[in-house]
């Protein structure tokens, strides 16, 4: 992957959010349980709001922090990726979502590391932080319920 401008980088990130929304929408359509269809469509909506935020960043040229930087809970690091079937439960959907955000974060961290252009590198760092926040949101929901007694 070669990027020459912040705009290009953001366009790439926007495309990824659109793909993510499509992924959850298609997955929702496969689900046997109605409540899981709804839950995955909600996840698709979240991806669309991430997309909108990045479009605004691109068009206004300002990439402000969404929330103060938070500690990495690292729940995603230790859970096993579930097998994707038409019978996912919500805990598995959360694992899937946190793993996807974690992978996106890793990718942007790597792009930030290899970018020789300082400004571009900063855009990737901010993108990685964004993905870190999304990951944490799924990890926190998982922790509050599945790891409640732990």
């Amino acid at each position: 992957m070669q990027f020459t401008s912040a705009e290009e980088a953001l366009n790439y990130a926007i495309k990824r959010e659109i793909e993510a929304a499509r992924f959850y929408t298609q997955l929702a359509a496969r689900m046997r349980k109605r409540e899981m269809q709804e839950a995955l469509l909600e996840m698709a909506e979240e991806e669309k709001s991430h997309r909108d935020r990045l479009i605004a960043v691109r068009d206004q040229g300002i990439f402000t922090a969404g929330e103060p930087q938070v500690q990495d809970l690292r729940v995603a690091d230790f859970v096993v990726m579930p097998e994707i079937t038409d019978d996912l439960d919500y805990a598995q959907a959360l694992i899937l979502a946190m793993k996807r955000e974690a992978a996106a974060r890793e990718l942007y961290l790597e792009l930030a590391r290899v970018s020789r252009d300082e400004a571009l590198s900063q855009v990737f760092t901010r993108l990685a932080e964004e993905e870190g926040l999304h990951k944490r949101r799924f990890e926190a929901e998982y922790e509050d319920r599945v790891l409640e007694g732990n």
Binding site: E67, V70, D72, L73, A140
Partner: peptide
């Protein structure tokens, strides 16, 4: 960890 928006201190490795 530090308390988050919900005020909870979540464990971090």
């Amino acid at each position: 960890g530090e308390p988050d928006a919900s005020g909870r201190r979540r464990p971090v490795p």
